[in-house]
Nucleic acid binder design. Structure first.
Lengths: 365, 365
DNA sequence: CCCCCCTGAAGATAGGTTTCTGCAAGATCG
DNA sequence: CGATCTTGCAGAAACCTATCTTCAGGGGGG
């Protein structure tokens, strides 16, 4: 049997012509339908035919066209990932560690279910959003009445958000930490360690995380009868953080414990403490919210609150894919994930239990 | 076996029917061709018709189907981004800061030219690579004879790598730092600051960065007649880094200056120095390669080498899109980017200009 | 012995866009 | 005034796959 339909040898002769499904069909001596069924495990075919077709397809290096498949099935296997931006850069500076971890987990989770992640900007002049076929989208920290989310939902694209949607954003589901509980837990922890006046380093932005955390702090203060002591700064500006930390410790009503809401606050507060001759944890207890491992080896190591971005990333993607594939119910799902307080020296006034005593070098330096 | 059971779901019923190009054509009273031409700025049409069509399209909320467009044009506007993985996680732990910055810059650059980035695993059981239509791919630190890269190139997909391709990987272009020059520069810098014996904290992995840097170090040692003093550890294990830092400072031939090749080395070395009662920079000069801003506010601030991931991410994407669009020549391009040494207190023996003197006794145990 | 069902596989269509080709009518020119 | 060019737009092919429908033939049940 000589190959029929081989006449399209050099169409334009330019590029390496990728083998299409009909080339496989011709080479295997079957129809296009049979090839499709054999490769996708559908239809009614004897195993012999299936094997034969697969073998021929492999030999030709056949790869189904993703575009054609998407067009036909309406599924692209692509999930958008976007984070609200402050300014023109697509990602927020202060969210790096969180974002990187979250994205990594989300990528893994998506991959395990056969999807890939597309990084997209929350806003853009060029309409990239319209140019890519998305089965759904993960939105990190959507802002109030986010026009992008509204538009996506209007188009029927499932949207799941990391962080409670502010206002009445019509997302299909969301995942978030219990920020109030986290803050209250930290404040109790600090109080238990002997803190009399706990300060807060917070942000001027209006996102949900900042708002909920600050509110919880103020509530706690009112409950225990402490005067609130806090400084705010624009969270996307790293320099402003250092200044705010300094300001907080320069106040006449200087706190003897501080919780910083953002990742770099730990080092900033530590540096400020040094400038004012405050020993940590003896004169000042310190906790900050961070995913960074550097706080394990600062001097002293700093207690951190982890938002567990890995868990969140995984959960968000699972929820989204469930929505895409119509697994879950039609009603919106909200999922609250626990946080983890990693207690280190900076918030323990009594003992340093984390490190063992270390023998000094025999030949002292 | 399963019955078809495919419910057509009333044609005009539940699902929001997206308007297609022919709906626009019908509504505007023109042909499909005219709509396409009007919206894409092609063909010969009077402005009046163009405006009319655009208006109708807007009114209907028309969005061209990305899948159909991709199928027709052969361009998806999607670029793959992958990083070689050590282990099962898609990203390397130690590359977080670098990766996050690089990805951010790459996303921006791609976006500016109308492309979006897809995060993909370097290896995977599920063949996600085959399921997404990519115009090209960025590969971070490809390993020797990377099968993925080979396959992509075989399929005619342009590949540009961040980092020199090891072996004879057939990438279309690559971008890398001048690692030898960077290391030599740092060693000279340390020597000029008074270092007599410079140590190196390096990795056991065989990637190009580690290899080139280590080689440059050994070369420099031979040139100036210093006995090499270095410790290696698996770079993906953060705990191993702390141990290796400790080992390096515990050696009988303890160095009086150290360069650490990986991001966390700075804090690890600082912690180790404290354990051995070594003052930085008086007893020990410190430099590490990092993109993290925390080193600006450690005590003391640590000199870092920045690989400038933003520049690299931008350059890689530009090169790739040039290759995709056939702008550049057909021959492979290699582009070497400069590094930046951010000099801080930890590598300056003479003066502490950044901080005032702090009255503190001998470091506590 | 006839009919029906079941197996195995081919034919045809749809999915939405871009673009090549074609065509009519008005404008221009010899 | 006829021929050619230009303008404005329409028709239809092609992109590649998945799936719905159809069909031939063989075997089992009535």
């Amino acid at each position: 049997m000589t190959a029929a339909g081989n006449h399209q040898a050099s169409r334009t002769g330019r590029r390496l012509e990728r083998a299409g499904i009909r080339d496989v069909a011709a080479a295997a001596g079957v129809s296009i339908t049979t090839v499709s069924d054999a490769l996708n495990g559908k239809g009614r075919l004897p195993d012999a035919t299936r094997r034969h077709v697969r073998e021929v397809a492999d030999r030709l290096g056949y790869r189904p066209s993703a575009a054609a498949r998407t067009l036909r099935t309406g599924r692209s296997g692509l999930i958008g990932l976007t984070v609200t931006t402050y300014g023109e850069e697509p990602f927020t500076f202060t969210e790096f560690a969180y974002f990187a971890e979250m994205a990594r987990a989300a990528t893994s989770a998506a991959l395990a279910r056969g999807y890939a992640l597309v990084i997209l900007p929350a806003s853009s002049r060029h309409d990239v959003w319209g140019n890519v076929a998305l089965d759904g989208t993960v939105v990190i920290d959507p802002s109030d009445h986010d026009p992008l989310v509204t538009e996506l939902v209007r188009q029927g694209v499932p949207v799941v958000s990391d962080g409670r949607p502010a206002g009445s954003l019509p997302v299909h589901a969301w995942v978030d930490n219990d920020h109030e509980a986290a803050v209250l837990g930290i404040l109790d922890h600090l109080a238990a360690a002997g803190a009399r006046r706990i300060g807060l380093l917070t942000g001027t932005t209006t996102d949900t995380y900042t708002r909920l955390s600050t509110t919880a702090y103020l509530e706690w203060c009112e409950r225990v009868g402490q005067e609130p002591v806090y400084e705010s700064y624009p969270a996307h500006d790293p320099r402003a953080g250092a200044v705010a930390a300094d300001r907080l410790l320069a106040r006449p009503d200087r706190p003897d414990a501080v919780y910083g809401l953002f990742d770099p606050n730990g080092t900033d507060l530590l540096a400020a403490a040094r400038r004012y001759g405050l020993r940590v944890p003896d004169d000042l207890l310190l906790v900050c919210c961070s995913e960074s491992t550097v706080y394990a080896s600062t001097e002293p190591p700093i207690t951190t609150l982890s938002l567990q971005p890995r868990r969140i990333g995984t959960a968000v993607v699972q929820l989204l894919i469930d929505a895409i594939e119509g697994v879950g119910g039609a009603h919106p799902v909200q999922q609250v994930m626990p946080t983890e307080l990693i207690v280190r020296t900076s918030s323990q006034r009594r003992a340093h239990r984390t490190t063992v005593s270390h023998p000094r070098g025999p030949a002292g330096g």
